[in-house]
Computed example of a mutant assay.
Amino acid sequence: MNTTTRISTAERLGRGWRAYARGERRLSSWLASKGVPVVGAALAVWVVKLAVLGVLLYTMSWLVLLLVFAVVAAWVARNAGLADDPPEPEWRNGSAGFGLYTYDGFRIDPHVEDDE
Rank of each mutant, 00 (worst) to 15 (best):
N93L: 03
M1E: 09
R22K: 01
L57G: 15
V68A: 07
R26W: 09
I7Y: 03
F69C: 09
A10G: 07
R15Q: 01
V68I: 02
F106Y: 00
V38E: 09
R6F: 12
L57Y: 15
T102H: 15
H111V: 13
T4L: 12
P37F: 10
H111G: 13
V72K: 07
Y58P: 03
Y58Q: 03
Y103D: 15
D84A: 14
G94T: 00
E88T: 15
G105K: 06
P87A: 05
S28F: 02
P87F: 03
L53E: 00
E113L: 15
G99V: 07
N93P: 03
T5W: 12
E116Y: 13
A42F: 00
V55S: 10
D109S: 14
M1G: 10
K49R: 10
L31V: 05
M1W: 08
Y101V: 12
L82P: 00
A83F: 12
V55K: 06
L66P: 01
F106L: 06
E113T: 14
Y20I: 09
N79S: 06
S61W: 13
S61I: 08
A44T: 00
M60D: 00
L53F: 12
P37A: 13
W62R: 06
A21F: 06
M60C: 09
E24A: 04
L82K: 04
V48A: 11
V71R: 01
L57C: 14
P87Q: 05
S8I: 11
W75Q: 01
L65A: 14
A21P: 07
W30T: 02
R12P: 07
R78F: 14
L13C: 03
L13D: 04
P86M: 09
P89R: 10
N79T: 01
